[in-house]
């Protein structure tokens, strides 16, 4: 029954009550019907997960879980694939705030125009963009990835853990870390939500990667 056994063992453990907690869980878990149900559902999801293989991120266990998000109609159908996959632009070139702020941020329109005042100016989507720029109006992008109001999630700390403070990690491969929660955006045009981003999803990853477990680390 103990699903925790299936999770990869953590590398370092300096958390005082680890053993106690685990035995406690083992004791309490059978009492909970929804828990069993949820794990059955989650494991079902694992089996069904498409066999996309991500490049290796050292010292990290990618979180498990899938979600089938609805397609979101954006004002301009932004092709992530062209940018991130074909042209190999680093995620953080545009989502530049990710490494220093809780939010990754949508790039300012001026950044788009930095390239697209020269590149591909004849394409219809770029013409759309130029229209916005000429009106001095940023496009009204729709939010795809969101967490509830009471959750404090910070990109900065996650990037620090998995990218910048991660020995052996190549910053060039940052997309693989982003994919933990955002999926393979470089295979999409506009981003779709493909990870559940529920507390269980966060929690399993925190367990696998030795993240903090204090409620107030993530809840506000």
């Amino acid at each position: 029954m103990s699903n925790i056994q299936q999770l990869p063992s953590r590398q370092v453990s300096n958390r005082g009550m680890e053993g106690g907690r685990r035995s406690l869980c083992r004791f309490l878990m059978p009492l909970s019907f929804p828990w069993v149900l949820l794990w059955v559902l989650a494991l079902g999801g694992l089996v069904l997960m498409p066999g996309a293989v991500l490049a290796e991120v050292p010292n990290a266990v990618p979180p498990e879980g899938t979600y089938e998000g609805e397609h979101v109609e954006q004002p301009i159908e932004f092709p992530h694939d062209t940018h991130a996959d074909v042209n190999k632009i680093n995620c953080m070139y545009c989502h530049t705030y990710a490494r220093r702020s809780p939010v990754a941020g949508i790039p300012p329109t001026s950044k788009c125009m930095g390239c697209h005042s020269i590149i591909a100016t004849d394409k219809p989507r770029i013409k759309q963009l130029t229209e916005y720029w000429d009106k001095r109006q940023p496009p009204p992008w729709k939010k795809v990835h969101d967490v509830p109001d009471f959750v404090h999630f910070t990109h900065e700390k996650h990037l620090k853990r998995f990218v910048f403070d991660n020995e052996g990690m190549d910053v060039e491969n940052v997309a693989e870390v982003c994919a933990f929660c955002h999926g393979e955006v470089k295979k999409m045009t506009v981003a779709n939500k493909v990870k559940p981003l529920t507390m269980g999803f966060c929690r399993r990853c925190h367990e696998a990667n030795d993240g903090p477990f204090d409620c107030w680390k993530c809840h506000k």
Binding site: G16, M17, R21, L24, F213, D214, C215
Partner: peptide, 13 residues
């Protein structure tokens, strides 16, 4: 996890 936290607090205290 919070019950764990409560136990941790008490023993820590």
């Amino acid at each position: 996890m919070s019950l764990k936290n409560v136990f941790t607090d008490w023993s820590r205290y």
